[in-house]
Computed example of a mutant assay.
Amino acid sequence: MACEAQRSGTAEPRRGRPRSEASHQAVLDATSRLLSQSSYEELTVEAIASEAGVSKQTIYRWWRSKALVVLEVMLTGDAEFEIVPMPSTGDLRRDCLSWVRSMLVEAFQETHVGMARSLVVAGLQGDAGTERLLQRASMWDHGPLAERLREAERAGELREGVDIAAAASAMGDPLIFRMLIGSAPSLSWAESLVDVVVTGLLRPAETSGSS
């Protein structure tokens, strides 16, 4: 499930001395490394501070919570979260179906649901800098799903003018919404979602491909 945004839109210092951009980036990089090694639940502000070589107070001066640090890491594209791998067999419909089926197993685990809910709350409680990040970033600009769609685009399989981020969002956002409300969709619902999205993306000659 990660996105690019301009660094100038990152969360603003809340109080005290002006933020050191070097320390700021060190915190984001440290958070990204730690998330690649452990779960969101295991991640602590103390661990981030130690990894980044800054004090815990420095982090709390700029971010209210661990969730806000992780949210900024995701929105600035400093980390990509791949819950499940995206296959690349040459059949886009089949690959997307495989990805969604795996997501139904992995993404709806309690740990991932808890992280998603924490990040939504962080976004709602964030400051003006967080708001700007949310407005500018698209979490579907990159990551395994977007890259698989770009691969299909390069192969000439997609209609001209397809917005890759919008296409990935059309497939991924409904899954995230179901995660947030704690209601895993049925397999048939997920497969229908893939069929609708992929059918709309493929060139007319390709839409008759089997699932």
Score class of each variant (00 low, 15 high):
Met1Gly: 08
Cys3Lys: 12
Arg7Met: 13
Gly9Val: 11
Thr10Phe: 15
Glu12Ile: 06
Pro13Asp: 07
Arg17Asp: 14
Arg17Asn: 14
Pro18Lys: 13
Arg19Glu: 14
Arg19Asn: 02
Glu21Asn: 04
Glu21Met: 12
Ser23His: 08
Ala26Met: 01
Val27Cys: 01
Leu28Ile: 03
Asp29Tyr: 04
Ala30Trp: 01
Thr31Gln: 09
Thr31Ile: 10
Ser32Pro: 09
Arg33Ser: 10
Tyr40Ile: 05
Tyr40Asp: 03
Tyr40Glu: 05
Glu42Leu: 09
Val45Asp: 08
Ala49Lys: 07
Ser50His: 14
Glu51Arg: 11
Gly53Ala: 00
Gly53Arg: 00
Gly53Glu: 00
Ser55Lys: 11
Lys56Tyr: 11
Arg64Val: 05
Lys66Val: 03
Leu75Tyr: 08
Leu75Trp: 10
Asp78Gly: 04
Ala79Val: 13
Glu80Cys: 15
Ile83Met: 09
Val84Met: 06
Met86Thr: 10
Ser88Trp: 08
Leu92Lys: 03
Cys96Thr: 03
Cys96Tyr: 01
Leu97Pro: 00
Ser98Tyr: 03
Trp99Lys: 06
Trp99Phe: 15
Leu104Phe: 08
Val105Ala: 04
Glu106Ala: 11
Phe108Gly: 03
Gln109Leu: 04
His112Leu: 04
Val113Pro: 09
Gly114Thr: 12
Gly114Tyr: 02
Ala116Val: 14
Val120Ser: 07
Val120Phe: 11
Ala122Arg: 05
Ala122Ser: 07
Gly129Val: 06
Thr130Leu: 12
Arg132Pro: 04
Arg132Trp: 05
Leu133Gln: 09
Leu134Cys: 07
Leu134Lys: 07
Met139Gly: 12
Met139Pro: 07
Asp141Phe: 00
Gly143Cys: 06
Gly143Ile: 08
Gly143Met: 08
Leu145Gly: 01
Arg148His: 09
Ala152Asn: 03
Arg154His: 06
Ala155Trp: 05
Arg159Pro: 01
Arg159Ile: 04
Val162Lys: 05
Asp163Thr: 11
Ile164Gly: 10
Ala165Asn: 05
Ser169Ala: 14
Ser169Leu: 03
Ala170Cys: 02
Phe177Trp: 08
Met179Gln: 15
Leu180Thr: 06
Gly182Arg: 07
Pro185Phe: 05
Pro185Tyr: 07
Trp189Arg: 02
Ala190Asn: 07
Ala190Pro: 06
Ser192Pro: 00
Leu193Thr: 02
Val196Arg: 10
Val198Gln: 00
Leu201Arg: 02
Leu201Phe: 10
Leu201Glu: 04
Leu202Val: 09
Pro204Phe: 12
Ala205Lys: 13
Glu206Tyr: 14
Ser208Asn: 11
Gly209Val: 15
Gly209Trp: 15
Ser210Met: 01
